[in-house]
Design a binder for these strands. Structure first.
Lengths: 183, 183
DNA sequence: ACGACCATGTAAACAGTTACATGATTTA
DNA sequence: TAAATCATGTAACTGTTTACATGGTCGT
C-alpha cells in the first residue's frame, strides 16, 4: 500500500504529468520505490477520484494530451498520516541469495558469469549514486529537507557498497570451487 | 518466478511436509525468500502436478494428514537450470526510505518512534544471524556447500549491520530536527 | 503522408496477502 | 467430551508485470 504515497511524495516535490512521473520513477524516487507507467496512470486515476490530487487547470482531458497533477490538502494529510504510522518491515525476497543457496545443492555451474554481471550492475549504480551525491549534496548545504534526502541517498550508497564488496567475495569463492553439478 | 525454486531448494536440503516447509520459511530460507503456508501448499500442488516433486510413499492423501514431499530428477534439473540462468536484479521497494523522503516534504512528526522500533527489530535480527553463525559455521568447517551457505548468511549479517548503523544515524538526525509538519 | 516518438490508457496474466474452512490429534 | 492445536486447503482480494491499443505531435 505504498505506491499512492510514493506518487504523492513525487507530486509534492514537483507537480507532474503521468509520463514525467514515470521518468522520475526510473531514477530518483524509483531507486527505492519502482513503478511502471501503467501502475502510475491507474493510481493517478484513483487518487484523483479520491480527491487527493487534481489535474492542473491548463490540462486537457483528451487522450494523447499531457495532463499535470498537483496534490490537494487531503492528499498531503494522508501522506503525513502514512509517514508517521507504525509499519512493520516487509519480508525480503532476494533471488540471488536464493540461487547461492540452491547452488549449494545443485552445484555452481554457470553461476559465476551472472555473479560478475550483477557485480558490474551494482558498481555502475554505486557510481551513479556517488555522482548524485557530489551534484546535489555538496558539503555545507544542510537544510532539514536536504539532510533527510541525503540520508536516503546514503542508504543507497552504503547498500551498493555492501553489494559490490559481497559480490566480489562471492565471485572469488565460486571461482575457487570444484565445478560439480550436484551436492 | 522464484517461489517454486525456493521450495525445491528447501526440499532438496530435506524432504518435508507443507507445514514443515512453512516453519522453515519462517527462519532459514525464509530470511531471504519468505512465503506463507497458503503459497506453499498451492505451489506444492503445482510442482507435484508438474512431475517435479512427489509425495513420499508413507503419506496419506486425506485432509489433516501429514504429507511429505521429495524432489524428482525433473525438479532438480529445473532448479539447476534456474540457478545458472542469467537474471536481472528486481527493482527495490523500501517503504522506510520512502517515508524519509516523504518526511522531507510533510515533516518528521511521529517518525522517530517507528525508526527506533525498526532499529530494535534489526538489532534482534542481527543477533539471531550471529547466533546461527556461531552455531552452524564454526571456524574450520568449510566444505563447498558450507562455504556457499556461509556466504549467504554473511550477506544477512552485513545487511543487518548496515541497517542498524544507518538507522542509528537516522534516529539522531530526525531527533535533532525542528519538529514541524510541513516542508 | 509517413515514420518515429510522445502521452495516456485497457486488458489479461501472475504473484502475494488475508480471511476463512475443515478434518485429525493431543491434552485437560 | 470439549478446547486447543496441528495440518491442509479454498476463496477473495490486492498489487505487480507484460502485452497491446490509441490518439497526438514533430520532422522529413
Amino acid at each position: 500500500m505504498s505506491l499512492p504515497h510514493a506518487i504523492l511524495t513525487a507530486l509534492l516535490e514537483r507537480p507532474s504529468s503521468g509520463l514525467e512521473l514515470t521518468r522520475r520513477f526510473d531514477r530518483s524516487i524509483g531507486y527505492f520505490w519502482s513503478a511502471t507507467h501503467q501502475q502510475i496512470y491507474r493510481e493517478l486515476g484513483k487518487l484523483e477520484a479520491d480527491g487527493q490530487i487534481r489535474a492542473l487547470a491548463s490540462a486537457q482531458p483528451t487522450r494523447g494530451q499531457k495532463k499535470s497533477y498537483e496534490v490537494l490538502p487531503a492528499g498531503r494529510a494522508e501522506l503525513a498520516r502514512w509517514t508517521a504510522a507504525a509499519q512493520d518491515p516487509k519480508p525480503h525476497r532476494d533471488a540471488l541469495l536464493l540461487r547461492l543457496r540452491a547452488a549449494a545443492v545443485v552445484g555452481t555451474e554457470g553461476l559465476e558469469a551472472d555473479l560478475r554481471r550483477h557485480l558490474a550492475l551494482h558498481r555502475r549504480q554505486l557510481a551513479e549514486y556517488e555522482d548524485i551525491e557530489r551534484r546535489d549534496f555538496p558539503p555545507g548545504k544542510d537544510s532539514p529537507e536536504d539532510r533527510l534526502r541525503h540520508l536516503v541517498l546514503r542508504a543507497g550508497i552504503d547498500l551498493e557498497t555492501f553489494w559490490t564488496g559481497w559480490l566480489t567475495r562471492a565471485v572469488e569463492e565460486v571461482a575457487a570451487m570444484p565445478d560439480r553439478s550436484a551436492g
